Amino acid sequence: MSEQEAADAAASAAAPRKRAAAKKATATAKKTAQAEKAPTGKKTAAAKKSPAGQTAAKKTAGKKAAAKKATAKKAPAKKTAVAAKKATAAKKVPAKKTPGGKPESRESRAKRAARLNEALAEVYYYAHPELDFENPFELLVATVLSAQTTDLRVNQTTPALFAAYPTPEDMAAANPEELEELIRPTGFFRSKAKSLLGLSAALRDDHGGKVPGTIDELVKLPGVGRKTAFVVLGNAFGVPGLTVDTHFGRLVRRWKLTEQTDAVKVEQEIDDLLPESEWTMFSHRTIFHGRRICHSRKPACGACPIAELCPSYGEGETDPEKAKKLLKYEMGGQPGQRLKPPADYPGRPAPPLPSRDPATEPPAGQSADAAAGAQR
Rank of each mutant, 00 (worst) to 15 (best):
A236V: 07
T88R: 13
K192M: 00
A29V: 10
T71M: 09
F248S: 01
L273T: 03
D151F: 03
A13G: 03
L140S: 02
D357Q: 12
E122L: 10
R285E: 09
E278T: 11
L233I: 08
P358F: 13
E361P: 07
L179E: 02
A27V: 12
A57P: 00
I287N: 01
H284M: 12
A229H: 05
A72N: 04
R19Q: 15
K49D: 15
D216P: 04
A38E: 14
L242M: 09
N235H: 15
A35Y: 10
V244E: 09
S12Y: 09
F248L: 03
K86L: 07
K79N: 08
R292I: 03
A368I: 03
K63C: 02
A147I: 01
A33K: 15
T26N: 10
S2F: 00
L326W: 01
A364F: 11
L309C: 06
V252H: 10
E308A: 11
S108V: 05
A90N: 15
A119D: 00
T26G: 03
L327F: 05
T243I: 14
T261C: 02
A13T: 02
Q4A: 10
R204P: 02
E276V: 08
G62Q: 09
R17C: 04
A300V: 06
F162W: 07
A359I: 04
P39N: 15
P342C: 06
D216G: 08
P320N: 10
A33S: 13
P94E: 12
K102Q: 13
K18G: 03
T143Y: 02
A6T: 08
V232T: 05
A163C: 03
F162P: 01
R17S: 10
A84W: 01
P352Q: 11
A14N: 11
V141F: 03
R338Y: 04
D245C: 10
K49N: 15
G373H: 12
L182W: 03
C304G: 00
P94C: 02
A13W: 02
D369V: 12
V252Y: 09
T246K: 08
P346G: 07
T88D: 15
G314C: 05
S296D: 15
T243H: 00
A75M: 12
R106P: 04
E308R: 12
M1K: 08
Q366C: 08
T40Q: 11
S367C: 05
A370K: 01
D319I: 02
T44N: 12
A67D: 09
S277M: 01
C310H: 00
F282C: 08
V224A: 04
K18T: 06
A21G: 06
A67C: 00
P341N: 13
Q54A: 15
I215Y: 10
S200N: 05
P311N: 00
L273G: 02
E269D: 15
E3Q: 14
